[in-house]
Structure formats: C-alpha cells, structure tokens
Design a protein around this nucleic acid. Structure first.
Ligand SMILES: [Mn+2]
Ligand SMILES: [Mn+2]
Ligand SMILES: [Zn+2]
Ligand SMILES: [Zn+2]
Lengths: 130, 130
DNA sequence: ATTAAATTAGTAACAATTATTATTATTGAG
DNA sequence: CTCAATAATAATAATTGTTACTAATTTAAT
C-alpha cells in the first residue's frame, strides 16, 4: 500500500506518535501547518487512512464529531469525558482471552476488541461542584 | 427534553426496538416511509438524537459510515464483521466492576463502558474458503 | 540523468448530520 | 369543548467530516 516516502507523511506519523491526546485529522493538520505551511488537509486525511490501515496508528471513532487517532497501537482501553469530550488512556490490563471467548460464541474469527468508558473526567467533575 | 408526543416518534421508537440489526438513521427512514410516506429524514435524525440522549435507545458509532442505533439499552457487547460490516450482539456477561476500577484509576466518574469486537463473521469466514 | 510511479496541493464532490423556517399537531388552561 | 401556546413536523438549506479528482512535484529504480 505505502510504496514511497514523503516528508509530509513522516511528519504526520511523528505528530500522531508524539501526541498523547488522540487528535483529530484537523488538529494534526493545524499542528503541521506550522512547520509545513502548505500541507494539504487532504494529504493529512489520506495518510491517516493509509497509516491506520497499515497498522502504524489506530483510528478511534467517536459518537460526536471527527475520528481520532492514536499513535500507541498497543491494545489498551480508553475513557471519554462526556463533558469536555477528551479521550485518555486507561492503564489497565486488556482482557485478551475475551477474543477467544467471542470466537466460540459466534463461530467467528476475532482479531481484536476495543473498549470505551464514558463518564466525567476529574477536571470536569471538579468544575461541576463549583 | 421531550415534551410532547408524536406518532412519528412513536414509530421510530418501535422500529428501533423491534429490529435486531442495529440500523442506521437511513435504514430506519427507509422502513418508516412505507407506513409514513412523507416522514422527513430530518425528523428521524432529530428523534434518534433525542431518544438516545434520553436513554431510550443507544447510539453506536462505527469507524466506517453512519452511526447505528440499538433498541436494547441493556449493557451488552458487540461484534462487527470487518468484511460485511454487520454488527451483532454478544451474549456474554458485561464486566460491570471494570467501571469502578476505572473510576479509581482516573479519579473520574464512570457511567458505563462499551466494547466492540472486530473480526470476520461465520458467514464471511465461510465464503473466504470457497 | 532518465523515466515511471507514487505522492502531493488544491479544489471539487460527497455523505452524514444539523439548523432553519414555515406549517401542522398536541396539550393544557379556561 | 374551545383555543391559544408551543412543541413537533416536512421541506429545505447549511454545515461538517471526509473522499475523489487532477495537474504538478517528488521519489526511487534503472
Ligand atoms: Mn490511546
Ligand atoms: Mn446490540
Ligand atoms: Zn472532562
Ligand atoms: Zn461478515
């Protein structure tokens, strides 16, 4: 799929890998424009799609708004605050033998699973009390 | 939020509750047009949003394409086939004490969590062998 | 260096969703 | 049971997130 290199793509990988905030395509675009003033939003979308398909990064689809991307491809769960909409990682073991369990239940082949916890983050929890 | 009733909304609830296939707004619209030929797609979107916000139904966001809706609001996990894109329920206990675990880890308030398993369903698995 | 293919920027097109507006339906007070 | 208040609707326009297209540029193999 990916056959040649480009500095735009390298910068996109770098951006996603360096950030911990699960950015959207638009947020990555905004960041990259500082170093590459005429990078195209289409290039960002195209490469994020290619990179996630190739497994270099992970795509996270959200109920509200744009997809988000994660440079950490290790299996881990996420939490999303229903107030500020921020997503953060959960430092908790992923139950990988659930995959085998589901395979048997459905007679399917299971590659992986993802989990998203919903609630109010510590910051927004605090603000609500004021 | 919801202050008056309407037969369109009632029909939307009924549709989502009766189906087991986690339909999109468009699919619900297509079904309802048979009995309500001049129902508006906007009405379907608006009510699905209201109903899921009010907790009558659940919204499921997918990586590809439109959001899907589930009339079964009980906590359960889903499986999505990466080939045919169909979503089905998994008849497996939901680990609810994970919520408390995450609350402690993040010092957040956790309402719930969802999980999606990805892979190839039994049908698509079979077809691949032919 | 030559050349073919991949990638890009820029723009147009697209699909999913939301907002607007004028009209209709529901509801509760009198 | 009226009838005004207002919530909900159909139709349509607008917005958002994303993908497709095209010509120009960059990459990498010869
Ligand atoms: Mn993450
Ligand atoms: Mn379900
Ligand atoms: Zn928050
Ligand atoms: Zn399938």
């Amino acid at each position: 799929m990916i056959k040649k290199s480009s500095k735009q793509r390298d910068a996109i990988i770098q951006s996603v890998k360096n950030r911990r905030d699960h950015p959207t395509a638009d947020e990555i675009y905004a960041q990259l424009r500082e170093s590459y003033p005429n990078i195209s939003l289409g290039t960002v979308y195209r490469n994020l799609a290619k990179l996630s398909e190739a497994g270099f990064i992970t795509r996270i689809s959200c109920i509200e708004g744009a997809d988000r991307f994660d440079g950490d491809t290790s299996s881990h769960y996420h939490f999303q605050c229903i107030t500020c909409r921020k997503i953060c990682d959960i430092d908790m073991d992923v139950d990988t033998n659930l995959n085998a369990k589901v395979e048997k239940l459905l007679d399917a082949h299971v590659d992986d699973h993802m989990a998203m916890f919903f609630g109010t983050c510590c910051k927004c929890k605090g603000l609500a009390k004021i």
